[in-house]
């Protein structure tokens, strides 16, 4: 992923004078909140707002085809112009945020839930269970992510639910690996050994002792994954193998618009920019979150 530093990060608050007793720091060290996370969070927030209020904020029905006004350039009536069948591009871009967010969040949720469970089981039980589960994860990981998502959604049939499953399966191994690694390192720590000696069962160990210690890296991973999931959905829909038409998806808008590039570039440029901004925002947010939550980065200077 992207490196951890940005010029803005170097603007640090001055060190506390020695006489002042430093306040106890909680999980979140607010001084490490970089502008990166603020920018990312505000754009993500704006996207969520647009997605939720799309019904009120768009001037037209995104699927209303006005054949009298097809491929009109941006104007006061249609701020982003109209597409090849006379639909309002602005309305489709705003509704597209809904699809992108929905697919991004649910797909990552699917991958995360399955991956975390597999990682916990593999890490706690070890032995052949671990071996089999992790080799399967390795095999999934060996496929180029986009190609695997493409093949799964082609086999299951296109549509929003199948695409979520396809993307979720692709992201499963990264969570399984992450959680397994964490479990293996935490499993041998004194507090877990102590709990075991006291007779705690596997479930209790998992829920009370190991789970709280793996949540932070999972959250970071998930927030970064949402951006790649949005990209993957856009790519699949661009190839015509994602959500079904006429569902307004940024990728499928680009797919329909690209052939009119020479005469109607707005058909491609606005949906493309929407994907770009969404992915950028989730990347900034995830990166900022990592700086905030990663214990290896916390309390240290710049990496």
């Amino acid at each position: 992923m992207i490196g951890q530093t940005s010029p803005a990060d170097f603007v640090r608050t001055p060190a506390l004078p020695a006489a002042v007793v430093p306040r106890r720091r909680g999980l979140i060290d607010w001084r490490r909140l970089s502008p990166r996370i603020w920018i990312g969070a505000s754009v993500v927030g704006a996207m969520i707002f647009l997605a939720l209020t799309a019904d009120f904020l768009t001037p037209y029905d995104p699927n209303y085809q006005n054949y009298a006004e097809f491929r009109q350039p941006p104007s006061a009536d249609h701020p982003f112009g109209t597409d090849q069948v006379g639909r309002d591009v602005y309305s489709r871009v705003v509704y597209g945020a809904r699809i992108s967010l929905l697919v991004g969040v649910v797909a990552v949720g699917i991958g995360m839930t399955a991956g975390v469970m597999i990682g916990l089981v593999a890490g706690l039980y070890g032995g052949w269970v671990d071996e089999i589960l992790m080799r399967i994860m390795d095999a999934i990981y060996a496929f180029p992510a986009l190609v695997l998502a493409l093949a799964i959604s082609a086999a299951l049939g296109t549509g929003i639910v199948n695409i979520m499953i396809a993307i979720g399966v692709v992201y499963m191994p990264s969570y399984a690996r992450l959680v397994r690694g964490q479990v293996l390192s935490i499993r041998e720590r004194e507090f877990v050994l102590a709990a075991r000696i006291l007779g705690a069962g596997a479930l209790r160990l998992m829920l009370l002792h190991i789970w709280p210690n793996v949540t932070a890296p999972i959250i970071v991973q998930a927030s970064l994954n949402i951006s790649t999931a949005i990209l993957t959905e856009a790519s699949l829909s661009f190839l015509g193998l994602g959500v079904n038409p006429p569902t307004p998806s940024w990728g499928s808008s680009l797919n329909g618009g690209a052939q009119y590039l020479a005469t109607a570039p707005w058909l491609s440029i606005y949906p493309g920019l929407a994907i770009f901004v969404a992915v950028l925002a989730f990347n900034l947010f995830g990166d900022g979150l990592r700086q905030l939550l990663d214990p290896r980065l916390r309390g240290r200077g710049q990496a």
Partner: peptide, 17 residues
Amino acid sequence: TLAALGGVAIPHFFLGI
């Protein structure tokens, strides 16, 4: 740094277009 942030976020097919 800015260019890199943008480079990661831009979809291949959109950059191609």
